[in-house]
């Protein structure tokens, strides 16, 4: 029996190893080293009372982490005004430019975009200020939870600080709050309400 069992085990083992294909070295041209990476986060604010009043701010880091510092526009909004803000994410290294926003919408049930305000840069999320402006998400994912790419933002009084956009990746755990999951994007813009 022992022998039979051993033979059987051997056949199973042998067969499965036989089908273990060996990967061959991919000798692609090294210039194909490109990878999908986010280079740019763009905010477009449209004044609800006057569609011609637009504010556009870009957070852009073409060469990725390290190297040259990112170029960041300031966000300057009017006090006591309601805007609709659109969030767009791009990979500008490739041509044509890759609009990653579409993929966030596709994976809507796994992502949540937060627009937050802080007094200082690189603060703890718990210190987000709630008295600067009111943000109301306009878009929803397939399960009806807010996505946060499109929001209305109703500013209050004058303010100077940081406008921060955080995209959380929350597969299987998205519940509308910030805590679950991990961070995909975390960008800060200098921010003023005048």
């Amino acid at each position: 029996m022992l022998k039979r069992f051993s033979t059987l085990a051997m056949i199973v083992l042998g067969t499965s190893l036989f089908f273990t294909a060996c990967k061959k070295e991919d000798d692609n041209d090294p210039t194909e080293n490109a990878n999908e990476e986010i280079t740019t986060l763009k905010l477009t604010f449209v004044n609800n009372a006057n569609a011609a009043d637009k504010v556009v701010a870009n957070w852009r880091d073409i060469d990725g982490i390290g190297g040259n510092a990112p170029t960041i526009d300031s966000v300057i909004l009017k006090a006591n005004t309601t805007y609709t803000v659109y969030t767009d994410v791009y990979d500008e290294r490739v041509s044509p430019v890759d609009t990653v926003t579409a993929e966030i919408i596709k994976e809507g049930i796994e992502h949540r975009v937060f627009h937050l305000f802080f007094a200082t840069a690189n603060s703890s999320v718990a210190d987000a200020l709630t008295n600067v402006a009111t943000v109301t998400p306009l878009d929803k994912d397939e399960k009806g939870l807010p996505l946060g790419l499109e929001n209305t933002i109703a500013t209050k009084g004058a303010f100077k600080g940081v406008y921060r956009v955080i995209i959380r990746h929350q597969p299987g755990a998205k519940d509308g709050t910030f805590a679950p999951g991990s961070t995909d994007v975390d960008t800060e813009f200098p921010f003023a309400i005048k």
């Binding site: 986010i38 280079t39 740019t40 986060l41 957070w59 880091d61 990725g64 982490i65 390290g66 510092a69 990112p70 690189n122 955080i166 961070t183 995909d184 994007v185 975390d186 960008t187």
Partner: peptide, 10 residues
């Protein structure tokens, strides 16, 4: 010291 990126600071 931190390196800023679109994903935040590392």
């Amino acid at each position: 010291s931190l390196q800023g990126s679109v994903r935040g600071f590392f």
